[in-house]
Design a protein around this nucleic acid. Structure first.
Length: 554
RNA sequence: UGGGGUGUAGCCAAGUGGUAAGGCAACGGGUUUUGAUCCCGUGAUUCGCAGGUUCGAACCCUGCCACCCCAGCCA
């Protein structure tokens, strides 16, 4: 926490600090296009914009950049809102939509025509592309560039009223076909799309391009600093050109920062959508996805995401952030917040031979080892328990082995020290039942005459609940799955990204596991109830948020 | 090869002319009824490279190199 507030200001924050000194307002915006769910990369931008507005007592708008009805949906608008709320941010005023400004944008387009700065081009998309030139060759004027203002007004009106087919005409700015920046070679302002828009329905059949919309939207809303990712750097010139030539009432400035790349992860809406459409995952909320909805369902707390965003910084250099940083912040938050419980993933029956059938010992266990305010819970100890198969070996494999073996001793977490004196094997020679005695004199204290190093977790057989665990692992086996020129990212999918373990046991207190609460199943990891799946399959299903850090080298 | 950017440890990142912060990862050690947490310790004679300016350069100048983005009627 301390480190967080002491962190030095990144370059955008420094710009804000300077501008604030000059008595400027601070008004930011987060402008997603509603064409998919938000992911961890958007979280970086959300934390930047909402976080800075919060820190410097400014405002931050939520604005849906909905200029393309072909790709957008109302469902995405709703999902995006709940993801932002989940992160704990509040947008200023009403939600904004680019579509709120369609009329104003249209009037400004007419204004540009009147200024002889825009024209209707009836070249085909292909012809426009060819005449635009290339990176090294200048472009060439369209034959329609010399249309009269009056003609342009007629043609633009014709575009607006449905007099052209899709693709038959576009409105372009008249700038400079020889400009070294391709964006300045008469960019397209309006195109014809005969599609119903989720907000404006069938009111329009012409839609503004991103370039013609974004800066003006910022100006209309009185945005002071417009932060976007690096790939828009080349558009800044155009952004300024429109603001210079239009009678806008405020002058926002665009600044660019590097988008987030995360190792072993995809941060591209388009590619995430492909994974969903091609059924590699179950949907936008699949816990293996880096979508905010997926992370939430997985059990990742919003605070972890905020800490992560603070940890990675904001710069202009291309980078790939190691996913271990995200994992660290998840564990850091969960270690503090998660109540502890015990769960046995692969049960092995263990009979206490010096305890009679029906005898019950009530035990109390703290819900958090470092924080008493979490309180305690009751545990029942009888002669029939389960421990994990991984915690028992017939023979002690090496001197570092701290768990149970035949003839050895181990502490049962929150309970007694037991000694294993016998076992039953199946036909394959695998142990199927252990016989142990417990040492009555070891509850809450160490035995006086000997050292018992190991501690293992357990559940009481009779009171335990059956549960199924969904163990998630990274979706890709390659650090940069989408950065290989000739290999599709789907080639790197991890076949073990989801492992379902059924037939597990959780302690009785988890019968009432609360949705939304992440528990630490001691020695295993952090888990949370999957409400949807549990209801659907009528059993307790836990998602593993993340395993505990494991530094044990066998 | 036009234009716009970026190069500081395996990864992220401070540093803005006074002699290389911090975090993640890794590796040691200590504590521990979670092989977790916590604590302590270990890294750059050097900042893409080469010159130059200066008493002094990661920071200034010159030249070079590498990588990223741009030729949607996507955003």
């Amino acid at each position: 926490m301390l480190a967080l507030s002491e962190k030095s200001a990144h370059f955008l924050e420094q710009i804000i600090q300077k501008d604030l000194l000059k008595n400027q307002r601070l008004h930011l915006r987060f402008p997603p296009e509603p064409n998919g769910y938000l992911h961890i990369g958007h979280a970086k931008s959300i934390c930047l914009n909402f976080g800075l507005a919060e820190k410097y007592a400014g405002q931050c708008n939520l604005r849906f950049d909905d200029t393309n009805p072909l790709k957008e949906e109302q469902a995405y608008i709703e999902a995006i809102q709940s993801d932002i709320k989940w992160l704990g941010y509040h947008w200023h005023d009403e939600i904004k939509y680019a579509s709120n400004y369609f009329k104003q944008l249209y009037q400004w387009a007419c204004y540009l025509i009147d200024q002889n700065l825009a024209y209707v081009d009836e070249l085909s998309a292909d012809q426009i592309r060819i005449k635009r030139g290339t990176l090294t060759e200048i472009g060439e004027n369209s034959p329609f560039r010399q249309r009269s203002i009056a003609d342009n007004k007629v043609c633009f009106e014709k575009m607006k009223s449905g007099g052209y087919a899709e693709g038959q005409a576009v409105l372009r700015a008249k700038i400079d076909m020889t400009h070294p920046n391709l964006n300045m070679r008469d960019p397209i302002l309006y195109r014809i799309i005969y599609a119903s828009h989720h907000q404006t329905l069938d009111e329009w059949c012409i839609y503004p391009s991103y370039d013609f919309a974004h800066g003006q939207e910022d100006a209309i809303e009185g945005i002071t600093h417009s932060f976007c990712t690096l790939e828009f750097s080349d558009h800044r010139l155009l952004y300024d050109w429109f603001l210079d030539h239009l009678p806008v009432s405020s002058r926002p400035k665009q600044y660019e920062f590097a988008p987030l790349n995360l190792s072993y992860t995809l941060t591209s809406k388009r590619k995430l959508k492909q994974l969903i459409d091609e059924k590699y995952v179950t949907g936008w909320t699949d816990p293996r996805l880096p979508t905010l909805s997926g992370l939430r369902r997985r059990g990742v707390p919003p605070e972890a995401i905020k800490r992560f965003c603070s940890m990675i910084g904001v710069t202009k250099s291309d980078s790939v952030v190691d996913v271990s940083m995200l994992e660290f912040s998840i564990r850091e938050v969960l270690n503090q917040e998660a109540p502890r419980a015990m769960a046995v993933m692969y049960p092995l029956k263990l009979t206490i031979t010096n305890l009679d059938d029906g005898e019950k010992i009530q035990l109390k266990a703290p819900n958090h080892p470092q924080n008493d305010t979490f309180g305690t819970r009751n545990l029942c100890f009888t002669n029939t328990l389960y421990i994990d198969q991984a915690d028992f070996k017939i023979e002690k494999p090496n001197k570092k082995w701290k768990r149970l073996y035949l003839g050895g001793e181990v502490r049962l977490r929150n309970s007694y020290v037991i000694h294993c004196h016998d076992m039953k094997l199946n036909e394959n020679g695998e142990p199927i039942e252990l016989f142990c005695t417990y040492d009555q004199n070891t509850l809450g204290k160490d035995p006086v005459d000997r050292k018992v190093k190991g501690v293992i977790h357990w559940v009481e057989a009779d009171s335990a609940c059956d549960a199924t665990f969904y163990l998630y692992d990274r979706l890709f086996q390659n650090e940069t799955p989408d950065m290989h020129a000739n290999i599709p990212f789907t080639d790197f999918l991890n076949p073990k990204s989801l492992v379902i373990v059924a037939g597990s046991k959780v302690e009785s207190s988890l019968k009432q596991a609360l949705p939304g609460v992440v528990y630490q199943f001691e020695r295993e990891g952090y888990f949370c109830l999957d409400e949807t799946l549990s209801k659907q399959k009528k059993q307790l299903i836990f998602n593993r948020t993340i395993a505990l850090k494991d530094t044990w080298v066998q």
